[in-house]
Design a protein around this nucleic acid. Structure first.
Lengths: 177, 177
DNA sequence: TTATGTGCAAAAATTTTGCACAAGG
DNA sequence: CCTTGTGCAAAATTTTTGCACATAA
């Protein structure tokens, strides 16, 4: 099991609800896409859309909830769940599974990049390169399909300069997240 | 909600437990890999390994449990969960997420194949080709990682020879067998 | 014999929902 | 208005675990 066992403190503490304190732009990138998709832009959605727009990682629902709550505590986890599901259906968000039990999200239009997950630490490294996708698209084409999107997750382990390509990797000390 | 809402009948009915009726080979492909990984080959594991070896689809735990129980009812879901987790850690199995909430599994060495999901029908088409993975492995290597496994899911749409490239992708259709 | 594995049921953890109320267009 | 969204808490699902007993090596 990956060292992703954070015990996420339970929900928000009651009694400190507040309206948007930080300036939430009325038209974050994601928010714009929502409108285009014909969704009602409620205060909650605007905040969640904003949070998603400025995120440069792959937050899970609990994390999104935390970030959104920080801006406007009048948001519930249920809404976050409902929102990401909706946005995924609309094709605005993409769901990822990096292991660790929770679904994680990122904006769909973040380019042709791949996620390389360190199986020991759980850390996620991203990198770009059009070639692999180009190849895959070509193969799909050959089967009569136009590639619409893709989900590519690679699992790797830090390679040691010397001792390479010998005995199958066995136990390695897992480092923290 | 998609038609993936199979309500998996609850666990096994008590009172009809039986020992392996069908001939479970002592050395299915997966079983062999287990031994190589230094795992004890218990009766349960042998059955589960067998089931996995002959599966040509991507069963989830509940389904594996059903198939295994059919052969030897002295197996519990807990063991199936423990086993797939173990085999995944050993790199013998790979976990897939085709949407639908449950993790699905397939043998790791089923070749370098990809899953192309038809976004309109949800149908899954598989195809092989080593090149893309070779490329990705190379890129990972450059970042200092040995590629351990990968999960590549492509979403495509049947290409029509003429009428192509009009409206953007709309309806996303998850799940599929 | 002894470290491992397993069944069972209870517990966790994550996600979904029913319902009454709120709010966008 | 009236459809759509939301909070809350309860429910549903999927996965993990504690413990006493079983079993492979």
């Amino acid at each position: 099991m990956v060292a992703d066992t954070k015990t996420a403190e339970r929900r928000s503490s009651p009694g400190n609800r507040k309206a948007p304190s930080s300036p939430v732009p009325d038209d974050s990138h994601i928010a714009r896409l929502c409108v285009e998709s014909g969704l009602k832009m409620t205060g909650q959605r605007r905040v969640i859309a904003h949070v998603l727009s400025i995120a440069d990682d792959h937050p899970d629902v609990e994390e999104l909830y935390r970030r959104a709550s920080e801006i406007d505590s009048r948001i519930s986890v249920a809404t976050v769940y409902r929102t990401v599901r909706l946005l995924e259906e609309k094709g605005i968000l993409e769901r990822r599974d990096f292991g660790g039990g929770r679904a994680r999200y990122e904006a769909s239009d973040s380019g042709n990049h791949y996620h390389l997950i360190d199986v020991d630490s759980g850390r996620v490294v991203e990198f770009e390169d059009d070639e692999p996708v180009r190849l895959l698209a070509q193969l799909a084409q050959r089967l009569g399909f136009d590639l619409v999107s893709h989900r590519i997750e690679l699992f790797g382990r830090r390679a040691e300069p010397e001792d390479r390509k010998k005995s199958p990797p066995e136990n390695r000390n897992k480092s923290g997240s």
